[in-house]
Every structure is written in structure tokens, then in C-alpha cells.
């Protein structure tokens, strides 16, 4: 966890510094007083975030979290990891589905999304998968679009 903390703290510090700069360059509105400028509350809270990032960095450095080595062996293990592959596939399908939403009819794209998921993650045999995908997306469309009158993408 020390290595993860080290990376997180660096991200937090860089991000906080960038945002503090953004707070400083916000307009001042002199007539309201300096204390009422829109950048003041974010400035305070980004400063607190920066301090916390520094505390996290200091702690992770004490725990030798800076000793990050990226070896070919690690990358290969990551590449062959089942969990990483499953995560990458699940996320890609989510992004792919969201990208096509609104461009293809909801029932079609949703049925394809469910079918692909069940197929890849070996949920069931293909023809049951086919029935589940079509029935689920149609039922959801009917329930929300027709009965509850909820707008669908």
C-alpha cells in the first residue's frame, strides 16, 4: 500500500497545486471584499488537500513507497492476470455501450451489450443468453419508456 500511497500523494499534490493556481487567477470582485471572492473557499480546501497530500507523501516515503520498480516480469504478470483482463473487458464494454447510446436504438444496443457480457464472462449457453438479452432489454424498454414514461437515451 505504501507504493500506492506514494503515487496517490504525488497526484494529489500536483493536482492541488494546479487548482490552487486556478483559484488565485479567479476574478476578485473588489466591491464584495476579498473574502467573498469565488476562489476563496476552493483555495482553502485545496490547500488542506495539499497538506494532506504532503502528509501522505511523507508517510509513504518513510515506508519506502518510493521504491517503485517497473520490470518486464511485472508487466507480463499484469497482462496475464485474469482479474485485470476481466476488469479491462468489463470497462471497455461499458464505454463502448455508452458511446453507442443515442446513436443506435436502446433495445438493440442494450441486447448486444448484455449478450456480449454474458458470452464473454461465460454466464450461460448461447441460445439462453440470446433469449435473456433480448427479453431483458425489451422488458426494461417497455417498463420505463412505455409504462413509467421515463426518457431513455
Amino acid at each position: 500500500m505504501a507504493k500506492a500511497d506514494f503515487i496517490c500523494s504525488i497526484i494529489i499534490i500536483v493536482f492541488s497545486l494546479f487548482m490552487i493556481y486556478n483559484c488565485i487567477i479567479m476574478p476578485k470582485y473588489e466591491e464584495w471584499g476579498l473574502y467573498a471572492t469565488p476562489g476563496m473557499p476552493p483555495f482553502i480546501f485545496f490547500s488542506i488537500l495539499l497538506i494532506m497530500g504532503i502528509i501522505l507523501l511523507r508517510r509513504s516515503v518513510f515506508l519506502r513507497g518510493y521504491k517503485i520498480q517497473i520490470k518486464k516480469d511485472h508487466l507480463l504478470r499484469l497482462y496475464h492476470s485474469v482479474a485485470v483482463r476481466r476488469f479491462a473487458v468489463a470497462l471497455s464494454l461499458v464505454i463502448f455501450y455508452s458511446f453507442l447510446l443515442g446513436k443506435i436504438h436502446f433495445v438493440i444496443i442494450s441486447a448486444v451489450y448484455i449478450f456480449t457480457n454474458i458470452y464473454i464472462f461465460k454466464g450461460t449457453i448461447w441460445w439462453i443468453n440470446f433469449i435473456i438479452s433480448i427479453a431483458t432489454s425489451f422488458a426494461i424498454w417497455l417498463l420505463f419508456k412505455v409504462i413509467f414514461l421515463v426518457p431513455l437515451p
Binding site: 448484455i114 457480457n117 450461460t124 426494461i140 431513455l152 437515451p153
Partner: peptide
């Protein structure tokens, strides 16, 4: 019910809910 069947369905509901 298996996760691989349930989770995509839940994601559809999440999408509808967020869009609505």
C-alpha cells in the same frame, strides 16, 4: 442468478436512472 447475467442488467438500470 449469476453475476455475469445480473450485473449487465443492473448497468442498464444505472444508465437509465442517470439519464432520466
Amino acid at each position: 442468478i449469476k453475476n455475469s447475467i445480473l450485473m449487465p442488467t443492473i448497468f442498464l438500470l444505472c444508465t437509465i436512472g442517470t439519464f432520466a
